[in-house]
Computed example of a mutant assay.
Amino acid sequence: MAGHIARGGKSVYGAPLGILMLEARFPRILGDMGNGETWPFPVLFRVVRGASPSRVVEQGAAGLLDAFVDAARDLVDLGAEAITTNCGFLSLFQAELASAVKVPVATSSMMQVPWVQATLPPGKRVGIVTVNGAGLSAQHLEGAGVPVDTPVEGTEGGREFFQVLIRGAKQDMNVELARQDILDAGARLLKRHPDVGAIVLECTNMPPYAADLAAETGLPVYDIYSMICWFQAGLRPRRWS
């Protein structure tokens, strides 16, 4: 009987998912995509230098495509079998990244919107809570495969979440104020669009508040955690004995 042959070709094994990170110093609490303990499986991180949250969210990631492509290729060279990012606004680069790295790419939590819409009853639709409603353009939505008339509400008018994450006002964060910013955005979304039957959180820093938003609104809430757990399930399907 022939012996088992171990196959090589990678630098790192056992972590098939690569995460492209923005360059930031704010706290990444448990549940945040950039906290390694958030994930129930190993991941590979790569910080894209120069890709500040403000530059990506408020300036359309101008001039950063090549840097993201290079970083994604580095992750694949290390051993990543799929790539994701820690900012939903990078849906602008979905097609380019997928073409460049030749592995599955999921740039944005908003890619869940069509899936979630398919689960809703007639007359209900998906709404998005984003870090920056004013900056989330039709191009961002189209890049994620989201209808451009999807209801959107942002946190940019809040006291903490946007100021810390995007403006870099400080390196600490009042978690309760940040939570309230998310809840307030959800309340505004439902007030403006009472036909919303489920919420997708665009921002990858929002999963720590998803359960509270679901409890507050009584609606299903989906985020980057729900999406990436699904994504990983295809990379490493459960082996049933």
Rank of each mutant, 00 (worst) to 15 (best):
G3M: 12
I5T: 13
G8V: 10
G8C: 04
S11T: 10
V12Y: 01
Y13Q: 10
P16F: 12
L17K: 01
G18S: 10
A24M: 14
R25S: 15
F26A: 05
P27S: 08
P27M: 09
R28H: 11
I29K: 03
G31L: 03
N35I: 05
G36L: 11
G36Y: 08
G36Q: 10
E37V: 00
T38Q: 06
T38Y: 07
F41W: 05
V43A: 06
V43Q: 12
A51F: 01
A51V: 02
A51M: 03
P53R: 06
R55I: 09
R55M: 11
V57T: 08
E58S: 14
G60A: 08
A61C: 09
A61P: 05
G63S: 11
L64Y: 06
L64D: 09
L65Q: 11
D66Q: 15
A67Q: 14
V69Y: 09
D70N: 15
A71N: 13
D74Y: 14
L75N: 11
V76F: 07
V76E: 07
L78N: 08
I83D: 05
N86F: 07
G88P: 06
F89W: 07
F93C: 08
Q94F: 00
A100H: 06
K102Y: 00
V103K: 02
P104V: 03
A106V: 13
T107D: 02
S108A: 06
S109M: 04
M111L: 09
Q112A: 10
Q112W: 00
P114L: 12
P114A: 09
Q117K: 10
L120V: 13
L120F: 03
P122C: 04
K124C: 00
R125T: 02
V126F: 04
T130K: 07
A134Y: 12
L136W: 01
A138E: 15
Q139D: 15
H140G: 01
H140M: 04
E142H: 07
G145L: 07
P147H: 06
P147V: 04
V148M: 01
G154R: 04
T155V: 15
T155M: 15
T155H: 04
E156L: 11
G157Q: 12
Q163N: 13
V164F: 06
I166E: 04
I166N: 02
R167G: 00
G168H: 13
K170S: 12
Q171K: 13
D172E: 14
E176R: 11
E176A: 12
L177H: 02
A178N: 09
Q180E: 15
D181H: 03
I182Y: 10
A185N: 03
A185L: 04
G186M: 05
G186K: 02
A187M: 06
L190A: 04
P194W: 12
P194V: 13
D195A: 14
D195Y: 07
D195G: 05
G197K: 03
V200R: 02
L201H: 09
L201C: 05
L201Y: 03
E202H: 01
C203F: 05
T204D: 08
T204H: 09
P207M: 08
P207R: 03
P207S: 06
Y209F: 15
A210S: 15
A211R: 13
A211E: 15
D212G: 05
A215W: 00
E216R: 14
T217F: 01
G218A: 02
G218Y: 09
P220A: 13
V221T: 08
V221H: 00
D223A: 02
S226D: 14
I228N: 15
C229E: 12
C229S: 14
W230F: 12
A233W: 01
L235M: 12
R236D: 11
S241A: 15
